[in-house]
Design a protein around this nucleic acid. Structure first.
Lengths: 204, 204, 204, 204
DNA sequence: AATGAATGAGTGTTCATTCAT
DNA sequence: AATGAATGAACACTCATTCAT
């Protein structure tokens, strides 16, 4: 038989760049999951965006649930570090909160709870818990800060964890294009939200 | 058949007896979309939950995008009416906001923006706009109320639409089981959130 | 955009013969499973052999395990009926056994136990039991016959079920091409096996 | 590397120290193929069971077909030697057959013909023939013994090869859990089968 | 001698969609 | 008004195989 169309055989291609494929996959997956949510991300899509095949993704991450878990943990970790650096800095708490807000609002992304609900059925108990833990760390970081401020009478005494959640919930406005649609409106919104959070809607 | 063109006439249709099927589908779909988001709802699932076949769903709604649009508009409409009744009532604004909050937080549901983003690729330009309009109505209802209150010096002057968005954004805390997990914590959280919204975090 | 290659849309094709698709699938699947075993049968293969798509197979059988179960039960049922008709007929038992042997050996097929072992991991407990029950019926039919014969002193008293298994086990020689390779050798082998089964290898 | 061409020299290789890896792979593969059949054995599974990587398996055996061939030949060879030792021993033939039966039935395994059919499409003509030859040797060993016995009037004159196949076929009952499920029933079954083989089912 | 990285081809399964009745 | 039958496209996942080191 003569095969005119030279058929590509399976196996590793001859000349292929080695460099950190795994990291590329993790970055890409992180981005896509945050951008699109669990279901809408296809492993093929991730693979193609990385210039590799689906099988390569599986080489590094045994299944979608694992890739998701690793990717989200990666993002949460980055967010934690970044927030920590800002929030433990010097200056007025209100000012630091503004910087956190601007950082947080820099990229639009899917709602975390919604994403988790979507992914839940595909994750193992343990995976869910791990991610939850990673997320809690972030809110607890804020809560601790709020607690300290309450102790110093800089904030009204109350439930600091709830305050933390209220804060991040407000920042999710970032995703609403009717409100935030460019760099300027973003900064402006961040400022107004922090102001609202700090002083409330009623006249003081 | 509901097609994109067809403008729903206001008021209850007179004769249509068996159009109950269509309503059942619409109700069920509304519930499922709010509960699960766009992708995770399958037309077969909706059909089965209604005790009809998938083809019947298609008989009334030409495709998933249309069903989604109708279902969401239906929900937004209900929410609008319900909110309007509360917000235009008598009593202190802060008290009315609390009732709105409790109503809104009664059922956990997917984040609206996230759902829209998920659905976006499947919707026509027009459908997206229609839904956006329906949603805007809700926020504008709140915004108008806030505007009035500002005029009456009950609220600090500012951007009333942003205030409306901030308000609903805060209420999304409802979905976080770490914070809200039973009837009691729900009520308590609603109260604290309204308090925060009203007076802010800093001592007055 | 102009699409030169008219792309086929999903959905039912316009002119397609309706006739008993499900039966065709069941027959084909039965044949292939018996011929190839569980793993080597692909639903795509079955579909193509039936002139339909894989999705059509799924329309009738929710998954491979179900198709397998139904297909094997179908075969076992046919075998049962056929054997029953022969074995409960008149004439010498030995002669009837010969007919059963010839019928049984008519088609080569995969070893039943081997196939079940292969399939086991994919089947539910219940499915395995159902198939096992169907198979037991067959051996019990033989066993009952043997028991009767023992009562009538036509056979040495002993374990009739073991005898039944020994009998069918011997017939599996059918699959060995070194021994059976044409119509003539098949008939001849059947006769010799029954003779061996009946009188044993040692001189009487 | 073991390639198709390479003819294994008889006798134990002298120096090869680390060739233990190859033997381990061969043992493991043999076991798994006999236990699971061709398709269900994955080279990765074999590798992991040996504590090496898949690539190592490929280092010693160029592809699955070769590994299969070597593994099966290995098993057949062992079985041949073991059987030969028993069958050429002293004592009544019937007693020796019983020992062979017990040895053969010691481990449950996939049906040989079924396995070969499953593997067939992946094997080269030559590989199939080689395995077939190895298997024939076993049956011919039995057949020769039977032939001798016929000559000595210890057995009814007839087709000795068929008798050999009938004998091993009967022993495959071993795999049916409805009949054989523990050490005791195994021994008992072996005895009854040999009895049946020897004297037949009818009263003498 | 042994491995890590990568791949193409397939497999089971789901789902929105279409058409004839 | 409603359904049953059928489909194409996509998706998660597996596996034998290849290549560079």
């Amino acid at each position: 038989m003569v095969d005119e169309q030279e058929k590509r055989k399976p196996g590793r291609p001859k000349g292929s760049s080695t460099a950190q494929t795994m990291e590329k996959i993790l970055f890409t997956a992180s981005y896509q999951f945050m951008e699109l949510g669990f279901e809408k991300v296809s492993l093929d899509g991730v693979a193609k965006a990385c210039g590799v095949t689906k099988a390569s993704v599986y080489y590094y991450f045994n299944n979608k649930a694992i890739l998701f878990t690793e990717a989200i943990l990666f993002v949460l970790n980055m967010a934690y570090k970044s927030t920590r650096k800002i929030i433990t800095g010097s200056g007025e708490l209100k000012d630091r909160l503004l910087i956190v807000a601007e950082r947080y609002m820099a990229n639009a992304h899917v709602d975390f709870e919604t994403m988790m609900r979507e992914a839940a059925s595909g994750l193992s108990e343990e995976q869910t818990l791990t991610i939850r833990a990673g997320e809690s760390r972030l809110h607890e970081l804020l809560a601790d800060t709020f607690q300290e401020a309450m102790d110093k009478k800089e904030l009204v005494p109350g439930n600091p964890l709830l305050l933390a959640h209220a804060y991040t919930a407000m920042l999710s406005i970032r995703n609403r294009k009717q409100v935030v649609n460019d760099e300027a409106s973003l900064k402006q919104t961040a400022r107004e939200l922090v102001e609202l959070f700090w002083h409330g809607a009623a006249p003081h």
